[in-house]
């Protein structure tokens, strides 16, 4: 009975309140927060790098950074935006370490050559979509996944990625058009 009431109490709390409680030392608040965000954050990384090992490392590293930065969190911004900003920066660091040369901003579909993942497409729509996302340019893929996984508004995605709202919109438009095309093919 006590557990049910405690769970109900936790469910009523917003992410921001839970994070504040965790920052004050309430470990249970983190458990609830983690349960809410674990799957979206994991998919965000997994579909960025398409490598389970790298995704696991990125995921764990991002949570470690969140735990370390708990004292710096201020409830003036949404927790999701704050968390994904940390995750995004962690991912950018990963890209810089792994492929320092290929981080060129690509805004046009024609500039990007089809990646090797397209060869794997076996006709199933899900696999086509997955492959299409993987083959998107890094910035477009990142913006699209933030939109699809977190449901953040364009302004919030702009804050997370550190670009303007128009850039976010442009990246999303290019990403959607390219995925439509790949799904039709």
């Amino acid at each position: 009975m006590a557990l049910i009431s405690y769970a109900a109490f936790m469910q009523e709390k917003t992410d921001e309140q839970l994070m504040q409680q965790y920052a004050k030392g309430n470990a249970k608040a983190f458990d609830e927060l983690y349960a809410r965000h674990r799957a979206p954050l994991y998919r965000y990384f997994n579909r960025q790098v398409n490598d389970a090992t790298a995704a696991n490392d990125l995921y764990q590293g991002a949570w470690e950074k969140i735990i370390k930065a708990r004292g710096k969190y201020r409830p003036t911004s949404p927790f999701t935006a704050w968390m994904y900003r940390i995750a995004h920066n962690h991912l950018v660091d990963h890209y810089r370490r792994s492929q320092p040369v290929d981080s060129v901003e690509t805004e046009t579909l024609s500039d990007k050559q089809p990646g090797p993942a397209q060869d794997v497409i076996d006709g199933e729509q899900n696999e086509q979509l997955r492959a299409g996302i993987i083959n998107l340019p890094e910035e477009q893929r990142n913006t699209l996944l933030l939109k699809l996984e977190t449901g953040l508004k364009m302004e919030e995605i702009a804050r997370v990625t550190g670009v303007s709202r128009e850039t976010v919109k442009s990246r999303l438009r290019y990403a959607v058009n390219k995925l439509k095309r790949s799904l039709v093919e």
Binding site: Y22, A27, F30, Q60, W63, R70
Partner: peptide, 21 residues
């Protein structure tokens, strides 16, 4: 497919979070 993190990873992260506070 709804990918989820491995349970061991979940446990490691939760332990780390508990230790931190």
């Amino acid at each position: 497919e709804q990918d989820e993190p491995p349970e061991l990873l979940d446990q490691a992260i939760l332990n780390s979070a508990h230790r931190a506070v």
